[in-house]
Amino acid sequence: MNTAIKIRKGGVSDVPAMLTILDSAVGWLNGKGITAQWGTEPFSSRPKTVELVEQVTTEGVPWIAEIDGVPAGTLTLTPHPGAYVAPAGEPESYVRFLATDTRFHGHGVGAALLAHAAEETRRQGVSLLRVDCFAGSEGRLVAYYERQGFTRTEEFVVGDWPGQVLERRV
Rank of each mutant, 00 (worst) to 15 (best):
I5G: 00
I5A: 00
K6T: 15
K6C: 15
R8V: 05
G11W: 03
G11Q: 06
G11S: 14
D14L: 04
V15K: 06
A17R: 10
I21R: 00
L22H: 02
D23V: 07
A25K: 01
V26H: 09
V26T: 14
W28D: 14
L29T: 01
K32I: 08
A36Y: 01
Q37E: 09
W38Y: 12
G39S: 11
T40E: 11
S45K: 12
K48C: 05
V53N: 01
V56F: 09
E59D: 13
G60K: 02
G60M: 09
W63D: 01
I64W: 00
D68S: 12
D68T: 08
G73N: 11
G73E: 12
G73M: 11
T76I: 15
P79D: 15
P81S: 09
Y84A: 11
V85W: 03
V85C: 05
A86L: 07
A86T: 08
A86F: 02
P87L: 05
E92R: 08
E92L: 08
Y94S: 11
V95R: 00
L98V: 03
L98G: 02
A99Y: 12
A99N: 11
T100P: 01
H105D: 13
H105C: 12
G106R: 07
G106C: 08
H107T: 13
H107D: 10
G108Q: 13
L114F: 08
A118L: 10
R123W: 10
R123G: 13
L128E: 07
L129N: 02
F134E: 03
A135Y: 12
A135M: 03
L141M: 06
A143P: 03
Y144A: 12
E146L: 06
E154D: 15
E155W: 11
V157G: 02
E167I: 00
R168I: 06
R168V: 04
V170I: 13
